[in-house]
Nucleic acid binder design. Structure first.
Length: 275
DNA sequence: ATCGGTATCCATC
DNA sequence: GATGGATACCGAT
């Protein structure tokens, strides 16, 4: 499940830059210099979908479909009693918030790099749980690391891949998503940011929400753009599923680690949820 | 379907 | 009190 991402990325990039021409599987395969059979098995192995149904997960139509009942999504999650310590996520995340004041003296954090279905991942943990998950692009680990350091300037980051390794498998292997032994996460941010990130944890896998719906959910329907800002500053990619937030039209709008990766996550999850 | 301009308004610094 | 968006909307192509 690891090194497939390079080819997947190529395919997604080809699809998005040629979407006007509705490319066929043959064309996509050719553009990625693989055979149709190879492309097929690549996608099957990576996310469980055929290239065609993966492609379908990336269309505006599909996004709009999922957004149709977005208003109920967050509230439904709330009603099922997921509001506090219980299941907040498909990954069974429990979280703890830490305000900027609480880490003013800095915090010891461990970091490590590990393969993931979306390229090489950077994991950052504290003794109280995982605090960050980012991605390496073009093999530039230093940049990925300083992106994290910039978020918590006073944190003392120490390489410790033994500590971070255990997280990776659990996070990206959906068959290990079990309620016992939940994944512990530390949300470090302002009060508003933490409330936004908590809302993100309520969006079920394979579902989508929009900036507006989250603002309304927080009883602050006009804070749409403020929500956008907070979503964009989410330090724990994938686990806090900011990739499930789209514009009201279904457009992707943005992603800190690149729109291609956002598309990859959406398609991958469609495979996991059985689309 | 896309593109560009603009109204709006909240959290941050 | 200034700033700046991972917005939303509208009108033109």
């Amino acid at each position: 499940m690891t090194s497939y991402y390079q080819k997947v990325k190529e395919a997604i990039e080809y699809i998005s830059s040629h979407k006007a021409e509705q490319p066929s599987v043959e064309q996509i395969a050719k553009a990625c210099s693989v055979t149709v059979v190879e492309l097929h098995s690549l996608f099957k192995n990576w996310c469980g979908l055929t290239p065609m149904s993966f492609l379908q997960a990336l269309t505006l139509d599909h996004a709009r479909d999922l957004l149709r009942h977005e208003a109920t999504i967050l509230d439904a999650a709330f009603e099922t009693g997921l509001s506090s310590a219980g299941r907040l996520h498909d990954l069974f995340v429990t979280h703890e918030a830490m305000s900027p004041g609480e880490y003013k003296n800095g915090l010891d954090m461990a970091y490590g790099f590990h393969e993931s279905p979306f390229g090489e991942a950077l994991i950052v943990t504290t003794s109280r749980g995982m605090a960050g998950l980012g991605f390496v692009d073009e093999g530039n680990r230093a940049e990925a690391l300083s992106d994290m350091q910039r978020r918590w300037p006073k944190a003392r980051l120490v390489l410790n891949e033994i500590q971070t390794k255990s997280y990776v498998e659990r996070i990206f292997n959906s068959s290990l998503w079990q309620p016992h032994n939940p994944l512990k996460v530390t949300l470090i941010g302002t009060d508003f940011q933490v409330r936004v990130w908590e809302s993100l944890l309520k969006i079920p896998v394979g579902q989508m929400s929009s900036y507006g719906a989250i603002a309304s959910h927080l009883n602050n329907p006009k804070a749409v753009r403020a929500v956008g800002g907070a979503v964009g500053r989410n330090p724990i990619s994938f686990v806090v599923p900011c990739h499930r937030v789209l514009g009201k039209s279904g457009a992707l709008t943005g992603y800190h680690w690149g729109l291609t990766r956002k598309q990859a996550m959406i398609g991958w999850e469609k495979g996991k949820v059985g689309g």
